[in-house]
Amino acid sequence: MGNSSYINRHKDGKTDYAVVVDHATVRFNMASERIDNLKEYFVKLVKRELMFKEFLALKDVSLKVRKGEAWGIVGTNGSGKSTLLKLICGILKPYQGTVTVHGAIAPLIELGAGFDGELTARENIYLNGAVLGYDEKYMGRHFDEIVGFAELQDFLDMPIKNYSSGMAARLGFAIATVVEPDILICDEVLAVGDYAFQQKCERKMKQMRERGATLLYVSHSIESVKEVCGHALWLDRGIARMCGAADEVCDAYIKSLKG
C-alpha cells in the first residue's frame, strides 16, 4: 500500500484541536468483488484484475474540530457519516490522508459491541471495559456506578443473550460513558431504549459536554443536531458538501432534500 497514512493517538495533546482529519480518503472493497477462495484468486491474478473494484466511501474529506466543540454530521444513508466516525475511532485506516486525535475517545457507535451473549452482565461489564482499554481494577471501582446508571441491579447474573436490545444498550451506554472521555462519538445510539432512558442519556452527555468534552454526533434528526451542535458537516456520497455553523449547514441540507 503505497501511502503515508497513519493514526496518532495522544493521551494529552498540546494543540487546540481534538480531531484533525486531513484530506482523508477511505476505500472499500465492493462486496461483489470479494475474493475469498484460491481459485478465484488465481483467475483474477491471471486476468490482472486482482486489485479489487474499489469504492470510495470518503473522498478527500477534511475536518478540524477544536476542543470542546460539538459537531453534527448530516447526510443521507450511505453518505459516509459512520465511515467518518469509524475513521476517527481508529477502526478504519485512511487510504490517503491522515487522521490525528488528541485525547481519549468514548465511542458510542454500537453499544455493547463487545458483549458476549453467553456471559452474564457482571462478566460482560469487565469484558466490555477491557475492549475499551480499561483494566479490572478500574471497572471494579466503577461497577456500582455502571449498574446503577443502567438500572439493571436485578439482572446482573443473567446471560446477556436473554436481555432485550434496550437493556443491552443501556448497559453499553453506561459502560462507555463511565470514563471521562475527551471526545464523545455518537452514532444514533439513543434510538434504542425507552423515553426515560433517552432523557437520562442526554443529561449525561450534557454533563460531559459541560466538563469540556468534544462531541461528534450523527443523527437523522436535524432538530436534535441543531439543538446539540454548534457546527455541522454535510456529507454527500463521500464528499464534504458543506462545513460550518450548524444552522446554515442543516438548512442547506434540508433544502437539497426537498428540491
Partner: peptide, 12 residues
C-alpha cells in the same frame, strides 16, 4: 493497554 482484554478473553 489491552492486556486486561487478553486476560478477559482467556478467562471467557
Amino acid at each position: 493497554r489491552y492486556r486486561p482484554l487478553l486476560r478477559q478473553l482467556v478467562a471467557k
